[in-house]
């Protein structure tokens, strides 16, 4: 379709992927008890899905992030896992870059993207093999790194009433003595993405 909004298509694909990825990270990194997850198939691979309040929270978060991705203003989406004292122990960084405007020519292109996202999901599902165990009682938050000053993007991100956004604290962003664990890079015509983990050396 000629009238497809390119930015919207990328944002739809990416937010759907991020939702699956966040659920899987929370499962694999044992942030929530495994009993509250349900096995599902996405991208033709087994994934884990949450229901209830937690699922709603993740959906609301991504619904707000979507307008930034649509306008190519989100540089990174980061899932931060924090210990009981709210200090980050792991940061799953999705670094996003979108090429200049182009039209989506065929379904083959989208199917290719899906294959690349599938590979990324598979990599997340086995990432516990390369990461140290987290301490008990961890929580998480999702951060969005914007290309422009965050305050300029505040209106765009605040699309849900009663789901306000704020500028992140230095404490949640900064992690001392972290090592970098690259997980996967994907390059397609419509989207480039790097996924890596910053892991605190002494958790």
């Amino acid at each position: 379709r000629q009238d497809l909004n390119f930015g919207q298509v990328v944002a739809d694909i990416l937010c759907e992927f991020l939702e699956v990825a966040i659920h899987l990270i929370l499962y694999v990194r044992d942030v929530y008890p495994s009993g509250i997850f349900q096995k599902r198939k996405k991208y033709n691979v087994p994934v884990q899905e949450l229901n209830g309040n937690l699922n709603q929270y993740i959906q609301d978060t991504l619904h707000c992030v979507k307008p930034l991705i649509e306008k190519n203003e989100a540089e990174k989406v980061v899932v931060v896992i924090m210990d009981k004292e709210h200090h980050p122990v792991e940061r799953f960084v999705f670094e996003i870059s979108q090429p200049p405007l182009l039209s989506i020519s065929s379904e083959t292109l989208l199917s290719h993207v899906e294959q690349l996202l599938r590979a990324m999901i598979l990599k997340i599902s086995v990432c516990d093999a390369v990461l140290d165990n987290n301490p008990p009682g961890c929580t998480f938050t999702v951060l969005v790194h914007t290309r422009e000053a965050a305050t300029r993007n505040m209106e765009k991100v605040q699309v849900i009433k009663d789901f306000p956004w704020i500028v992140a604290d230095e404490q949640e962003v900064h992690m001392e003595e972290a090592k970098l664990v690259p997980l996967k890079t994907m390059t397609s015509d419509i989207l480039k993405m790097q996924l890596y983990v910053e892991e605190k050396t002494r958790k």
Partner: peptide, 27 residues
């Protein structure tokens, strides 16, 4: 781009592990 000036987060925190478990107990 150091510090938090380019970084946004939701004000509300997600439910904790304990809160989720408490909800399950109530069911």
């Amino acid at each position: 781009k150091s510090g938090g000036t380019h970084i946004l987060k939701p004000l509300m925190s997600p439910p904790t592990r304990e809160e989720i478990l408490a909800t399950l107990m109530d069911l």
